[in-house]
Design a protein around this nucleic acid. Structure first.
Length: 785
DNA sequence: TGGAGTATACTTTTT
DNA sequence: GTATACTCCA
């Protein structure tokens, strides 16, 4: 028997060794799902199946990368590079680049990211003269996206009684029309949004028997990761692709289905067994990740859900520590408690920063943790921010590149037609759009034939110059690689110089980002990897396609020794020694938006199940008594999910039994926790000093980015510890010229007061943080002296 | 045309 | 509270 089989348990072996015919693997959390998938692929190859005939689809680039690496590790050599492993979106996009012409799209189609897509929706709404208060672009876009994911065409959408009733009730009956126009507009622009990558691929297979047959023959073995997260579009594609050989292997866990709001449906798991005559079903129920305590708690939690495939997770791991339930007085206290606990665990149990994760329901919760971690000089990485490629200056340069690849790309054109400023103002642009719409041409075509459209002489000249410039860039494409073109564009548009001349901190950062972009294009061009063994496309088009499909998580090093902060959604598939599940409060988690139906609540519960099962050794569940939500202080009840945990597995000694104990909580949570440890450790302040010795001083605006800060932290605030007994003065007492103290920004002087009386503001020049505009209704200021 | 001043939004969102 | 988007005026 091959070596790679030896490390598997019986169920896992079954899953790996079953080669022919459909198989569904129900893989509980931490049951070695990735191991099974990768070993299975290795086994297929060892059994003589050509790597070119294997397709493996994941949801994230990260998962795809990890899978590839692990297979390479098992097999050695470089056979694995011929495998088709990637995300649904990237694999389909790659195929569509070869086949798009068959469904009327240009092969060099642009991929619109969510921002581009919303911008198109907005343009459509404006052109239809609809009220954009009622038709909010992002809401309309979400609706369109849901329709696409459910394979509901504009025509279906318009005629579906139930859907129409919904829109009419929401007073937005025109969405069907917007949807239709949106699709037509994207088509005209030669662009596909993320959903289109799935949808158009489906269309291709559905309407082109040759294409279908080609890819059915190519992909003789298909494997799908995270099957519970697939939507109807993905489901249909898999069904079509797999119809010929029926060698489809899906791996999923219904208990971890947390993306129904993106169109995912557990139905796909249930349906799978009906789609084929004989489906082998394997359940992986042994957990190798967590302690018994954590597994028992997780089982109890998920047991409260009605709809699920029966299974019980078990583990042979040690019993482990009890789950700590921690109540804090406020969101900031919660942050402080977590940061203190991390510091303490590191010192007592020799954990590394990267052993910790702070997981929360919403991104807005990250602030308190960031502040607390920074104060303690604990390095961290926050996920869920904007991708590098979403930054304004990056998108600007990329827009030029997009336009020269695909002149129909209107979003790109609009973005840069007057940036850097060249005298094509709003009036002119509106006129171009109008002309384009009335003549049914693209904006670019109007520009090219501008002479016929009666522009003023001066305007005509700048338009012609613009057209000439873009054309000169396009002509470079044949003989130059992506880097050479991008460099040339940056230089000749004056875009780089513009940023270079901006000497503000932000301007400097932007300039550096552009340099980084150019470097990364260069790297990409020079990298030798030849995925799929096909001819490597180092052209600009391939590059653009690739970067649109990257997220901020792809830019971060998961192995960096930093504490990880992310939403629970983002944490699915990951594991950590120590996990802080934060903000376990009613209305936050479960979220207020998701408690109206049983289905919604069950999804929230699955989310809780996911966060619990991320922990290997230690789990904290924290909640705050009060929390700022949208600038308002609100009281919170502890989450119902806490009560659903079996009491005997909990340690509530950190929680305080209510207000009585919390009155004694004078110091930081850290001091409270450590009062019983018998000396040696005297409190949070000392911890901070200690950390300072180890990591250097806390970040300040003047210093260069300290190495422990994540690279993307642009906003640096010098931390200020408020004076003891800080008492804020009344807003009415404040006046220009006064010296004041702000709890976060420190000491400063009021230079100016402004704003309406109901919303007064003060411009304050701070000693360490520069000038800031402070909203007095929210900020608390103490008059000094 | 661009900057300041005002309005608005904020659940998750793998791509 | 904060980040971003829009509007309006100079």
């Amino acid at each position: 028997m091959q070596d790679y089989i030896k490390g598997l348990n019986e169920r896992q072996k079954e899953a790996v060794l079953h080669i022919q015919g459909p198989i569904m693997i129900i893989a509980g959390a931490g049951s070695g799902k990735t191991k099974v998938l990768t070993t299975r692929i290795a086994h297929l190859m060892a059994s003589g199946i050509d790597a070119f005939n294997i397709l493996a689809l994941t949801f994230t680039n990260k998962a795809a990368r990890e899978m590839k690496e692990r297979i390479e590790h098992i097999l050695g050599g470089n056979e694995a590079r011929n495998l088709y492993i990637g995300t649904f979106h990237s694999v389909f996009a790659r195929i569509l680049r070869a086949e798009a012409h068959r469904i009327g799209y240009p092969n060099n189609f642009t991929i619109y990211d969510t921002d581009d897509a919303k911008s198109v929706v907005k343009a459509v709404i404006n052109e239809m003269h609809l009220d954009d208060k009622l038709y909010k672009p992002s809401q309309v876009y979400n609706r369109i996206s849901s329709a696409k994911n459910a394979l509901v065409s504009p025509a279906d959408y318009a005629t579906d009684y139930y859907v129409q009733q919904e829109d009419i009730r929401a007073n937005r009956p025109a969405i069907a029309k917007i949807y239709d126009s949106y699709c037509k507009r994207c088509f005209k622009n030669g662009a596909m949004d993320f959903d289109d990558l799935l949808l158009k691929f489906y269309e291709l297979l559905k309407t082109n028997p040759e294409s279908l047959s080609k890819y059915q023959h190519k992909f003789k073995f298909i494997l799908i990761d995270e099957y519970q997260d697939t939507n109807p579009a993905q489901y249909e594609v898999i069904k079509l692709l797999g119809a010929m050989h029926e060698n489809v292997c899906v791996v999923g866990d219904d208990a971890q289905s947390i993306y129904s709001f993106r169109g995912a449906t557990i139905q796909n798991i249930l349906q799978f067994q009906k789609d084929y005559d004989e489906v082998k079903v394997v359940k992986l129920e042994q957990n190798y990740r967590s302690t018994q305590t954590i597994i028992n708690a997780a089982n109890d939690v998920i047991g409260k859900n009605k709809g699920q495939i029966p299974k019980v997770l078990f583990t042979e791991n040690a019993e482990g520590e009890k789950i700590r339930i921690v109540k804090t007085m406020s969101d900031n206290e919660e942050g402080k408690f977590v940061a203190d606990s991390i510091q303490e665990q590191k010192l007592r149990n020799h954990f590394l920063n990267k052993d910790f994760a702070i997981l929360y329901r919403t991104n807005a919760q990250s602030r308190a943790f960031e502040e607390a971690l920074r104060r303690m000089a604990i390095p961290y990485t926050m996920y869920g921010g904007v991708s590098f490629y979403q930054r304004k200056e990056i998108k600007d340069l990329v827009a030029y590149l997009r336009l020269i690849i695909n002149s129909r790309d209107e979003e790109a054109l609009k973005r840069i037609i007057n940036y850097p400023v060249r005298g094509i103002g709003k009036t002119t642009i509106d006129k171009i759009i109008l002309l384009a719409n009335t003549h049914n041409k693209t904006m670019w075509e109007i520009l090219v034939e501008a002479a016929q459209h009666g522009f003023r002489a001066g305007t005509l000249e700048v338009i012609n110059n613009f057209v000439t410039m873009i054309r000169s860039f396009s002509s470079m494409l044949e003989k130059h690689n992506a880097y050479e073109v991008a460099f040339h564009v940056g230089k000749n548009t004056n875009l780089v110089r513009e940023l270079f001349n901006d000497k503000s901190t932000e301007g400097l950062q932007r300039y550096e980002n552009i340099q980084e972009l150019l470097n990364s294009i260069k790297e990409w061009v020079e990298s030798p990897d030849n995925e799929d063994g096909e001819v490597v496309d180092k052209g600009l088009g391939a590059y653009l396609q690739q970067i649109t499909l990257l997220t901020d998580a792809d830019e971060k090093d998961p192995d960096a020794d930093t504490v990880k902060l992310m939403t629970i959604h983002a944490a699915k598939g990951l594991e950590f020694e120590c996990v802080f599940a934060a903000g376990l409060e009613e209305m936050l988690f479960p979220n207020a938006m998701s408690i109206n139906t049983r289905e919604e609540l069950e999804e929230e519960r699955r989310l809780f199940y996911v966060v619990v099962t991320r922990a290997k050794k230690k789990l904290w569940v924290t909640y705050a008594n009060t929390r700022y939500k949208f600038g308002q202080l609100v009281q919170n009840e502890p989450s119902r999910f806490i009560e659903e945990l079996p009491e005997q597995l909990l340690d509530r000694s950190y929680a305080g039994g209510g207000t009585k104990m919390s009155n004694n909580f004078g110091g930081s949570a850290f001091e409270r926790m450590n009062s019983g440890f018998g000396g040696g450790w005297s409190g949070g302040k000392k911890a901070a000093e200690d950390a300072e010795k180890r990591y250097g001083p806390p970040p300040s605006k003047k210093s260069a980015t300290p190495s422990y800060l994540p690279p993307k932290m642009e906003k640096k605030v010098t931390d200020h510890t408020p004076t003891e007994n800080f008492v804020a003065n009344e807003v009415t007492e404040l006046a220009v010229g006064q010296k004041v103290e702000h709890q976060k920004f420190g000491f400063g002087e009021i230079i100016k007061m402004e704003g309406a009386s109901h919303n007064p503001m003060a411009i304050i020049k701070f000693e360490t943080n520069g000038e800031k505009k402070i909203l007095l209704n929210y900020a608390r200021l103490r008059i000094v002296g």
